[in-house]
C-alpha cells in the first residue's frame, strides 16, 4: 500500500492491490471507502448488493481469503493484498457454478437482490468443516442473509443439493 497525491479534505487516497476474482487489481481508495463501495462504485462490480450498509442483512457478503464477510463493514484499505471473490467470480468458463445452478433449479430467489450474498455465504457454509450438514445447521449458519421475499425453503434446498459439489 502506498500513499498517492490525490487528496480529499487533506487526506490522501491510498493505493492497494487486490486479487479480485482471480485478477490482480491495483486501485486507489480513500481510508473511509468501504470494500462494498469500492466494488460497486469504483470497480462497477454491482453484483454485490447494498441492502442496509450496516451488517444487518448479508446482501453484500463476499469472500475474503476464502472467508465470507459483510463487505459493507470493512474498509477497502484493510484489504491490501487480499484475495476477494464476488458473485461475478463464482462461475468459471461461462458455466454456472454449482451453487448458481442449484439456485436456478430450485428457484431459490425471487427478486434476486439478496441472492449474491446468499450464494457467497452458502459456498462458505458448504466448505466449512465446522458447520454441520443438517437442515437446522444450515438454516442457522445462513441466518445472517435475509431474504425478504422469503425464499428460504428453496434456498435451503439449493444449498443442500449443492453439498459435495463445491
Amino acid at each position: 500500500m502506498s500513499e498517492t497525491s490525490t487528496a480529499a479534505g487533506g487526506i490522501s487516497a491510498c493505493s492497494i492491490t487486490l486479487q479480485l476474482n482471480g485478477q490482480r487489481r491495483e486501485v486507489e481508495v480513500y481510508p473511509w471507502t468501504t470494500l462494498l463501495d469500492l466494488l460497486r462504485e469504483q470497480l462497477h462490480l454491482t453484483g454485490t448488493k447494498k441492502g442496509c450498509d450496516h451488517g444487518q442483512c448479508g446482501a453484500c457478503n463476499v469472500h475474503v481469503n476464502g472467508t465470507v464477510i459483510n463487505s459493507c463493514l470493512s474498509l477497502a484499505v484493510m484489504h491490501d493484498g487480499d484475495e476477494i471473490t464476488t458473485v461475478e467470480g463464482l462461475s468459471e468458463n461461462g458455466e454456472l457454478h454449482p451453487i448458481q445452478q442449484a439456485f436456478l433449479d430450485e428457484d431459490a430467489y425471487q427478486c434476486g437482490y439478496c441472492t449474491a450474498g446468499q450464494m457467497m455465504t452458502a459456498t462458505y457454509v458448504l466448505n466449512s468443516s465446522h458447520i454441520g450438514d443438517s437442515d437446522d445447521a444450515v438454516r442457522e449458519a445462513m441466518s445472517g442473509n435475509i431474504c425478504r421475499c422469503g425464499a428460504y425453503k428453496n434456498i435451503l434446498a439449493a444449498v443442500q443439493s449443492t453439498r459435495g459439489k463445491v
Partner: peptide, 19 residues
C-alpha cells in the same frame, strides 16, 4: 420452469436501479 432471467440474477448481471 426455471426463470428465464435466472442466470442474469445469479451471475450478478441483472442491473438494479443503483447498479
Amino acid at each position: 420452469k426455471p426463470r428465464i432471467d435466472g442466470p442474469q440474477k445469479l451471475r450478478g448481471e441483472a442491473m438494479y436501479a443503483a447498479d
